[in-house]
Each structure stands twice: as C-alpha cells, then as structure tokens.
C-alpha cells in the first residue's frame, strides 16, 4: 500500500537497489525509462526531458527557463499520476521533492557507495579526483533543485531515512527497506490519498498554465486551488483573468483563487514599520 522513493548521486547503486526491492515486493518501478511515455504524451523530445532533469537554466545554457519549467512540470504531472497507483518504487526522478507531505511515501536518501562498484569502469578514477567530481555533482544538483523546487536535494531533513552505502551492503539495504515498507506507518489512508490527489491536481493546473504563462505557483488543499503569481503591475488583471480562464477548464477544481504576490522589496520595507 505504499511507495518508496530513492534519491542518490550514485545512479548505479540506486538503480540496483530500486530494482531489487521492486522485485522482492513485486512493486512497479518508475525511473528514467518513464521519459518515453512522458515524451509521447506531451509530444516532447526525450533527450530534452533528460536534459531538463539535469541542467539548471542559465544565460549560457541553451534551454530557456520557460521551457525548462514546462518540461519539469510535465515530468511532475506524469510521475504523480503514476504514484497515485501505489505499490511502486521510484528513483532518479527527484519525485521526493513534490511528495513531501504524503505520509505513505517512504523517502530514502542513499549516500556514498562509490568504492564498492567495480563492475562498470565508470568509477575507476583516482579517489581524490573522484571526491572532487562528486562534490561538483552535488553542487550542481543543489542548484538544480533550488531552482526547480526551492529545496536542497541533499538536505537530510527532506528524507525519512538516509543510508550510507559505504557502511551497509546493498542486500542489507534491500532487506531493511523492504521490511520498513511493511510498517503500517507507511500504509496509505484517506488523509494521505487526498493529499496525493491534491498534489496531482496542483501539478495538472500548473502544467496547463505553464503552457502559456510563466512564474506560476500552485497550492491545493482539498480541491481548493490557489495560484500565486507575479508580473508587471499593468499586466496584473489581464494575467489573473487568463489564469482563471485556463484553469477554470480543468476538471476537479472545487474552488479557484488567484493570488497576487507583492514584490519582495516592498514587502520587506513595510514589514518593519
């Protein structure tokens, strides 16, 4: 009745563990291979999807921020739709960043474990070079996750569990996590299912709006959708109207509210008066 989400810089081990657990519990898997389906459904290029999942837009990069946000939102939407099904092991999709509030998702961070991989020649670097490489990679991921979800991917506070692969064998991890998944603590319930449905609705609204607009934040509670946005003042009413029109066509919204975000500087200036 639950979902396991893995997150790690060590793609090889992450994949190995994910697969083993799914097999053991006879759960479905959800990973990069899913990009195919996403691409097909949203008519996107697969290559660009995996690019969006890995790079942070900047002036030098080719992908504009708008496109980037849209691609990410497509991934989020499809992944959430899959997660609605329960009984699933998911990795490599940064999915833990948007299912924070859902109690039947076990979020696990795997760290280290680089030394133990010998089958692929990919990690046959010198140890110090390797360390630098990992540190660089972690910095990149942090930048990416901050830009995309305003959270640090490696922040242990985001996880239910952090496992150091240098200290625990892969099989032990598989056993431990399979057992943990069995705790009733992580079973789905009305409350968490509703949260998941809210999350999905939010992703859908966001995805629809991002097709034509930028700077959209969506919060959903119990079918009540709150869209927060900001833009130039004179475009304000027009933008709000557009949002209302587009979102109004989406099924499942019980109540829609569009909020105007004051710009941060005036807010800061008024706060201490």
């Amino acid at each position: 009745m639950s979902i396991l989400i893995l997150s790690s810089e060590n793609k090889e081990l992450e994949k190995e563990i994910g697969k083993k657990i799914a097999q053991k519990l006879s759960f479905a898997t959800l990973n990069e291979q899913f990009f195919n389906k996403i691409a097909a459904r949203h008519r996107l290029e697969i290559k660009k999807i995996s690019e969006a999942m890995n790079i942070t837009p900047s002036i030098l990069k080719l992908m504009p921020a708008k496109t980037w946000h849209y691609y990410l939102s497509c991934v989020e939407l499809e992944v959430l739709e899959q997660l609605l099904e329960d009984r699933c092991v998911c990795w490599g999709l940064a999915a833990h960043l948007y299912v924070m509030v859902i109690s039947h998702v076990l979020k696990v961070r795997l760290i280290g474990g680089y030394g133990s991989v010998s089958q692929s020649g990919q990690f046959s670097m010198a140890p110090d070079k390797m360390e630098k490489h990992i540190a660089q990679q972690e910095r990149n991921r942090e930048k990416w996750s901050m830009a995309a979800f305003n959270r640090k991917e490696a922040d242990p506070g985001l996880y239910d569990m952090v496992i150091n692969l240098d200290q625990i064998q892969v099989d032990e991890v598989v056993d431990t996590l399979s057992m943990t998944m069995g705790y009733s603590r992580f079973t789905a319930m009305t409350y968490s299912k509703k949260k998941m449905a809210d999350q999905l609705l939010g992703a859908r609204v966001k995805n629809t709006l991002l097709k034509s607009l930028t700077d959209i934040h969506v919060h959903v509670q119990d079918g009540t959708v709150v869209v927060t946005t900001s833009s130039m003042k004179r475009e304000k009413s027009k933008k709000i109207e557009t949002i209302k029109e587009i979102a109004g066509r989406i099924e499942g919204i019980r109540y829609l509210e569009v909020r105007w975000n004051k710009d941060i500087i005036t807010e800061a200036a008024t706060i201490f008066r």
């Binding site: 859902i102 109690s103 705790y183 009733s184 603590r185 319930m189 009305t190 409350y191 968490s192």
Partner: peptide
Amino acid sequence: AMISLAREAMEKGAFDFIAKPFKPDD
C-alpha cells in the same frame, strides 16, 4: 492532521485516518 501524527496512528493500528474537514460521504 500532520504527517507524523498520521503515521503514528497507522502504526498503532488505526484502520484509517481522516483529516477534518471532511464530507459525510468520505
């Protein structure tokens, strides 16, 4: 309703956990 509270209730053997406000049909 909070994620930790929900998990605790389930662990203690609750059949389900519903957050207020809910509809009678829920």
